[in-house]
Amino acid sequence: MSTIFDGLSLGAIYALIALGYTMVYGIAKMLNFAHGDIIMVGAYAIFTTLAAGGHIGLALVVAVVVCVVFGIVIEKVAYKPLRGSSPLAVLITAIGVSYLLQSVAQIIFGAKAQTVSMVSFGSMKIGSAEISIASVITLVVGAVIMAGLTLFVRNTRTGRAMQAVSEDKGAAQLMGINVNRIIMITFAIGSALAACASIFYLMQIPSTEPTLGSMPGIKAFTAAVIGGIGSIPGAMIGGVLLGVVEKICLSIPVLAPYTTAVEFAILILILLVRPIGLLGKKRREKV
């Protein structure tokens, strides 16, 4: 019971990160491999704020602002000039940005892991199960954020413009949509979600290092691919699925050492059966 619960809340973290991958892919048609490192940027923003004596609420705000600024600047400086060039060039640039962020973090904060003085939330008992309050907060807030995002994309003018750009950039421009602005907004939203993910992540493991974002980044990317890259509900389902599988594997002693292997095996299996992912859409070719 508590395993499932922890799995759901870890899944919510993966889902929040996966949304950043999937939205940017859907709209800018690029894999932003530096996205995982935005979580690291958020974690250091939280670390610094808390170390300076700031409240955890303030830390969250600082993390969101810093991550959004990073997301927008990275898009403007590194990706925008490459728009329309080969996908390989963009992919390599993204990997370069990822190393750049990690290296700069290492220069500023050092390579060693540092403990983040997070507030401890303790746990509560429901029946016989002991449930961590951090997990509850993660799950509830994560769900609210994702519901909000879904409503935003479906029902607002900007959300509809995002859908339009994701489907056909040229036609979107003919509607009078500023495609560059929509791409920028997408990066900003993705980064804000990553900032939220970083605070939830620190609530589970209160320690940060320059390579903090790598593993959750890869897991979340896997989640996005499992769900069908480009699909928002797909990223949520993929993230939750991966989180639950991870926690279940970790709770079974025989399987525990192979947890990561199991997760990627699931990815391979799903891609074998359904190459476009669970909720991915096959684009019809235009005549």
Partner: peptide
């Protein structure tokens, strides 16, 4: 080049984006 995945109504709303 209509937006295939959106409804007729949503396509028309997008036409009035400005």
């Amino acid at each position: 080049r209509v937006f295939q995945e959106m409804t007729v109504y949503e396509n028309l709303v997008l036409g009035a984006y400005a």
